[in-house]
Design a protein around this nucleic acid. Structure first.
Lengths: 128, 128
DNA sequence: CGGGATCCTTTGCGATACTG
DNA sequence: CAGTATCGCAAAGGATCCCG
């Protein structure tokens, strides 16, 4: 495999930490939701129903640290308002991320079928 | 966001488990390495240096279960030989996965710079 | 060689409570 | 509203030993 001047497995040590970030379930979801535009903390929390407030904060901090997301304080005092948005770097990620999501959306049924079939087969072998 | 007839966050509950699989660090690396062609267990282990034999086995089983990888026993007896390869479904994944890797390869330096800058700033605030 | 089984440490993450 | 801090369980994953 060639990735520019990189190769797998040669430099997979270098890109795998980035893939960990990009591949992180919560980070992915946050980026996807923010691809619709800037959103406030509470909105993010409500739109990603399954996320806990702890993980949302942790994820946002990590994404901010990597320069993928930026944080703006709209109102310092009560009620405080904080808005999150994608940076340019973050926006450059949404295209390849969308591609992956589209693949997922397209193949989720197929994968679930295969999984069920595989499990059924395995159970049959147990008995026989 | 629109993904065919899906939307985030509406159906993110359905695609996020798939993203978990696809985004999984080990699974991703295995698929990338297998994109070069069928490989035997030991070869995979050597090419993905950082992986433990336990995680390689676990990952291969999971990918096989989802129908992304197929397992062929070449020689039953000693020494046993087992070959792993991508299924068609698995191969259909490498294009979007490559795109993501290329993004990673392209932006790993930038991200590391931003991370370092962010950490330096945070340390300065601690003191000041 | 290609694993399976077991142990044990580390990490992820939810729940809860508190704050400006 | 937008977090921070702490606790504690459950899952991830490395190390090691064993086997056909």
């Amino acid at each position: 495999m060639k990735l520019g001047n990189m190769s797998v497995p040669g430099d997979c040590a270098r890109i795998s930490p980035i893939l960990s970030r990009v591949g992180d379930k919560w980070a992915t979801l946050v980026i996807l939701v923010l691809s619709e535009g800037p959103k406030r903390y509470g909105v993010l929390r409500r739109e990603i129903e399954s996320i806990s407030q702890r993980m949302l904060t942790v994820t946002l901090r990590a994404l901010e640290r990597d320069g993928l997301v930026s944080r703006r304080v709209l109102a310092e005092k009560n009620p405080p308002q904080v808005e999150y948005s994608l940076t340019e770097l973050g926006e450059s990620l949404i295209e390849p991320l969308f591609a992956l999501c589209q693949w997922s959306a397209l193949n989720v049924d197929e994968i679930e079928r295969r999984r069920a079939a595989h499990d059924a087969r395995a159970e049959g072998e147990e008995v026989g």
